[in-house]
Design a protein around this nucleic acid. Structure first.
Lengths: 214, 214
DNA sequence: CTTTCTTGAAGGATGAATTCTTAGCCATGG
DNA sequence: CCATGGCTAAGAATTCATCCTTCAAGAAAG
C-alpha cells in the first residue's frame, strides 16, 4: 500500500527534486515551505509520512515535530536535513521523529527510511552513527554545549524565532493568531530569563542556538 | 535537441532529486559529488551543460568553474547553490558561469536557465538580481565591492555595529555625539542599501560580516 | 484540597522608533 | 568650480515597542 506523504522544505528547488524521488515510494499529497504551513497541512491531510527539514522559516522543524506528535500522532516523521550532528539527531528523536536522514545520505536511504517507518520501525542514517562514534572518541573541544534554549518554553522559542527572522511584534501576533500584547509579554519574558535587553541580542542568541541561520 | 547534462552536488540525496528534475530538460550523462571529479568527468564527457554547487569537497565550485572555462569552454555552467549573496553570484559569473540559481529558486527556473544557456544567453535568479546588478555594472575597473560590507561607509559600519550590539537609537546618538535623527538617517540608509528591513536582519548581516560576534 | 508556579493572554499609558521631507556643511575629484 | 557623496539635523505624523498590571487555567507541591 502506497503511503500518503507530505513534504516540507524551504528550498523549493530541492522540494521539487525530493518530490520526484518520493513519488517512487508513495503519493505526495502535499508540499509546504515553512514550519507553520506544515502544521496546518498535516492536520488537514493526515498523511502517513511527513518528510521535513530542521531549518525552516516561521517555525523550525524540531518545534514543528513537537506539535505534530500531539496533533497528528499517526503521521510518521522523517527528518531530512543538512545538519549532520548527533545532537540534532537525538533532539529529533526526542521530538518524536521516526527517522533521521541527512542530505548527504544516499537516495536509496530515503526509500529504506519510508519503508521502515511504515512498518513501525525507526531509521537512522549510518552517516550519523559514524559521527557519534567519532564524537565519542574525540571528546568536546568544540563548543558543543548543552543548549540552554530548552530553558525556554515551546511558545517562547516560537516567538524568538520569529523575532530573529525580522518579524515585528504585529506580524508575529498575526501569524500566531494572538494579541500583540501577548507577543510583547512573551518577548519580555524571554528577555528577562535570558538577561538580554534588545532585539539585536535576542537575534544573536537565536542564531547561536540554531533557531535561525544567518 | 536535448542538451547533455552533467550534475555536480555533494549531497547525494539532492543530487538524485535534481537528476529527476533535470531529466525533463535533457539527458543526464553523469553525476559527480566533488569538484575534482567534476573537472575529470567534464573533460571526458564534454557535456552541453554543467550544473554545479559552490560548496563541494576537494575543489570548490568557483575554482572548478575557473578551470572548466579553460578546459571545456563549450560547456555552459549553471550554478545551483545555497548561497544567496550577490558576492558569490558575481564571483560565479567572473569565473565563467552562464547562470546562477539558488536552491530556494522555483523549480521552473531550472528549466528556464537550461534553455537560456543553450541559446547562449545568461540567467540569474530574480531572488538576487537586484543586488547583483548594482555590483556587476561596476566591477571590471573598480573592485570597490569585494565584500558587501565595504559597500557601506565607515560611519554606516560604525552605526551598524552599535545596532547589532543591541544599542538603541538614543544610546548610539549619545555614544557618537550626534542627534537621534542622524542615527535614524544612517540606519534607514543602511537598510535601503542592503535591502534589509528589521533590526534582526541588520544584526544577522553584521554577524555574517564579522562586525560583531555572537 | 487549597496554595503556589508556570504558562498563556491582554488593557492602558508612556516612551521610542519609523517615515517623509527638507536643508546646511564639507571634502574630493572631474 | 561646482557636482557628488557623505554626514549632519529638524519637524510632524504615525506606528511600534515597552512598562506595569491584571486574569485564568493547569500542573505541582504542600
Amino acid at each position: 500500500m502506497r503511503p500518503r506523504i507530505l513534504i516540507a522544505d524551504d528550498h523549493s528547488m530541492i522540494l521539487a527534486g525530493l518530490r520526484k524521488l518520493v513519488e517512487a515510494e508513495g503519493d505526495v499529497v502535499g508540499t509546504v515551505e515553512d514550519g507553520r504551513a506544515l502544521v496546518e497541512e498535516a492536520q488537514k491531510l493526515r498523511p502517513d509520512v511527513i518528510l521535513l527539514d530542521i531549518s525552516m522559516p516561521l517555525l523550525n522543524g524540531l518545534d514543528a515535530a513537537r506539535q505534530l506528535t500531539k496533533l497528528v500522532p499517526d503521521s510518521k516523521l522523517i527528518f531530512l536535513t543538512m545538519h549532520a550532528t548527533p545532537t540534532y539527531a537525538t533532539e529529533a528523536f526526542k521530538a518524536g521523529a521516526s527517522a533521521y536522514l541527512i542530505k548527504r545520505s544516499a537516495a536509496l536511504e530515503l526509500k529504506q527510511a519510508i519503508q521502515a517507518v511504515m512498518r513501525g520501525q525507526h531509521y537512522m542514517t549510518p552517516l550519523i552513527t559514524k559521527d557519534v562514534l567519532a564524537a565519542t572518541l574525540h571528546p568536546p573541544d568544540a563548543p558543543m554545549r548543552q543548549r540552554p534554549v530548552t530553558a525556554l518554553t515551546p511558545r517562547q522559542r516560537e516567538v524568538l524565532q520569529l523575532i530573529a527572522e525580522g518579524k515585528g511584534t504585529k506580524g508575529i501576533a498575526t501569524l500566531l493568531n494572538i494579541s500583540v500584547k501577548t507577543v510583547e509579554f512573551h518577548k519580555s519574558r524571554i528577555m528577562d530569563e535570558l538577561d538580554l535587553h534588545s532585539t539585536a541580542e535576542l537575534t544573536k542568541y537565536a542564531v547561536a542556538e540554531g533557531l535561525v541561520s544567518l
